[in-house]
């Protein structure tokens, strides 16, 4: 049987965020109806902020 060639992968586009896993970004792409994950600071800044808030607020 002759195998079909798929059209190939599309031209790559920039992702929406640098912090979320591919699974998270895919979930938003499929389910969020145009809404995008809110921009987040880098993991280092986010984590420092979260931990400070938990223990100091």
């Amino acid at each position: 049987m002759e195998l079909k060639s798929p059209p190939g992968w599309s031209e790559p586009a920039p992702r929406k965020t640098t912090i979320f896993s591919g699974c998270t970004e895919d979930w938003f792409a499929r389910n969020a109806c145009g809404a995008e994950p809110a921009p987040e600071p880098t993991p280092e800044i986010l984590l420092r902020d979260l931990v400070e808030r938990a223990f100091k607020s």
Partner: peptide, 18 residues
């Protein structure tokens, strides 16, 4: 039934569709 197709990322942090 489909031949192999390779991604063609050109830089970090990209998304592509097959």
């Amino acid at each position: 039934g489909l031949k192999r197709a390779w991604t063609a990322f050109t830089e970090d942090n990209q998304v592509t569709h097959l």
